[in-house]
Amino acid sequence: MEPHPRTGPSAAAAVAHRIADRQAQIGLGPDALAHRAGMSRPYLELLTAAGPGFDPNGFLRIAAALGLTYHELVAGRADPPPGQAPPAPRPVLVRLTEEECWDRVGTRGVGRIGLPGEHGPAILPVNYAVDRHTVVYRTHHHSAADPPPGTDVSFEVDRTDDHRSNGWSVLVTGTAERIDDEPTLQRLMRDLAVQPWAGGPRTSWIRIRPVSVTGRRITSMPAEDED
């Protein structure tokens, strides 16, 4: 069982330091790390600042992208005592095709929407549905999750097992638009009936039109000694 991630500024700073050290060791810049981990660079920066308690699944993908186990990233490496059993398998990221991404996203569920904020990116949970290869969700009118039309946004869904050694993640990047035409609203209410994560007297339907759809599947392979 992997350790429960510690929280707090000191823990986040320690993990951020390990990430930076490993990036320097293998020559991997922040854009390349974000791409390899299947997330946007703003979300990578948010995770690095917040620490693994914010999104352990995201740190699993960062660890795999860096060639580390989750434990090595959040707790540091330790030399095993003589005669110890072979190291645990390491997580490996395998790219998903766009069709595989949509298959995992499914028809509805809970995801995270990433929006530009005054003090950095805002990451908010939403109940979503898929409508004709776009992502739609409802939110309180003029709330943080109700962006101006044309806003660049990211949307992420992931699943991992209890041991954080297998799972998948899908990242959709695109632009947000508010759905205003009455026939479409009636169809969405009738066919999808998505409940807003944070409701109110008035709600907006938001559609994310994808520009890119990427995904990673997390699997395991036997650990090998570092070169």
Score class of each variant (00 low, 15 high):
124 L>D: 01
163 H>E: 08
103 D>L: 11
129 A>G: 13
143 S>Q: 07
161 D>Q: 01
154 S>I: 03
168 W>M: 03
148 P>L: 05
130 V>S: 02
188 L>T: 06
194 V>E: 02
85 A>T: 13
115 L>Q: 02
195 Q>N: 11
100 E>N: 04
141 H>R: 14
117 G>R: 06
165 S>E: 08
185 L>M: 12
105 V>D: 04
129 A>H: 06
128 Y>V: 00
105 V>H: 05
93 L>K: 08
155 F>D: 02
116 P>D: 13
99 E>S: 15
149 P>V: 05
130 V>E: 05
129 A>V: 06
185 L>N: 12
87 P>D: 10
84 Q>W: 13
191 D>A: 10
143 S>E: 12
118 E>R: 13
120 G>K: 06
171 L>S: 13
147 P>C: 09
134 T>V: 00
117 G>E: 03
112 R>T: 11
154 S>Q: 04
116 P>C: 10
105 V>T: 11
176 A>T: 05
169 S>K: 00
157 V>N: 01
173 T>G: 01
83 G>E: 06
183 P>H: 10
129 A>I: 08
152 D>N: 05
104 R>E: 04
123 I>S: 07
133 H>L: 06
117 G>C: 04
196 P>V: 12
82 P>N: 09
161 D>I: 04
177 E>H: 11
112 R>D: 11
169 S>E: 00
146 D>Y: 02
163 H>M: 06
168 W>K: 02
182 E>T: 14
130 V>G: 01
90 R>G: 13
107 T>D: 15
137 Y>A: 02
182 E>G: 06
187 R>S: 13
186 Q>T: 15
149 P>K: 03
194 V>I: 15
92 V>L: 15
